[in-house]
């Protein structure tokens, strides 16, 4: 009888987890997004506060930071736009998403400089109950551009819960036909985007060993640094 019960329990669990939509939430905390377009720029702060108890974890003493991926589209020419040559090809996913870092940055973490410190103008690290904030100000994009981003909070360099993904947030803005920015949609990210994020990590990691020298003014690497494997907490 015990074996039969166990079998039934296992079957129920497997069935439940295999059903579409019967998924973990991937949001172990809360997001606060603030920002208003000014001209063709969009100064913004995206803050995540990690609440491990929400996910049945403690992650004591862990540190969390942000990774951002972007997708930019020109409605006039129906093509993806990039700010530089680097993200194209191997560094982008087949759909055109790429990890958002300026050329010269060896690390894919949004605020991590080559000297190993986080630049507070881009990302202040957080921890359980302490917010991590991503600071961005995309700007200069031409008229009729759609700018999309997904911010992902992850544990970084932590004793516990290291390399665990804590949550995903989507934000976007549009440049209208007069090249004036308008907020589009900001919301928790949806299911497909977590797979796209994994693809963006893979693309970065495939490209990193071939990147050539990366210098950002704070340090030099002979090539970009690959991400570790990451998974939802």
């Amino acid at each position: 009888m015990k074996i039969r019960i166990l079998a039934k329990l296992a079957f129920a669990a497997a069935l439940c987890y295999s059903l579409t939509g019967c998924q973990p939430t991937f949001q172990c905390g809360s997001w606060v997004f603030t920002g208003t377009p000014t001209g063709n720029a969009f100064p913004l702060n995206d803050t995540f506060t990690f609440d491990p108890s929400n996910c049945g974890q403690s992650c004591a003493g862990s540190q969390d930071v942000m990774i951002q991926m972007t997708w930019v589209y020109d409605e006039t020419t129906h093509t993806n736009l990039y700010a530089s040559d680097q993200p194209q090809g191997a560094r982008s996913t087949p759909n055109g998403w790429s990890i958002d870092r300026v050329d010269g940055a060896a690390h894919g973490y949004y605020g991590l400089q080559n000297n190993g410190t986080f630049y507070s103008g881009w990302n202040t690290p957080g921890g359980p109950g302490t917010p991590t904030t991503l600071i961005d100000e995309p700007g200069g994009w031409p008229a009729n551009t759609y700018f999309y981003a997904v911010d992902v909070a992850v544990c970084y360099d932590s004793r516990t819960c290291n390399n665990k993904i804590l949550g995903y947030y989507f934000w976007s803005y549009i440049l209208n036909s007069s090249d004036v920015g308008q907020k589009f949609i900001t919301a928790p990210a949806w299911k497909d985007l977590d797979s796209e994020f994994q693809a963006a990590l893979t693309a970065w990691n495939n490209w990193a060993p071939t990147s050539g020298t990366e210098y950002d003014g704070t340090g030099t690497f002979s090539h970009a640094i690959a991400f570790p494997a990451m998974s939802d907490l």
Partner: peptide, 8 residues
């Protein structure tokens, strides 16, 4: 220069 971090 337009972009994200590039523009900043």
């Amino acid at each position: 220069v337009f972009g994200s971090q590039e523009a900043m």
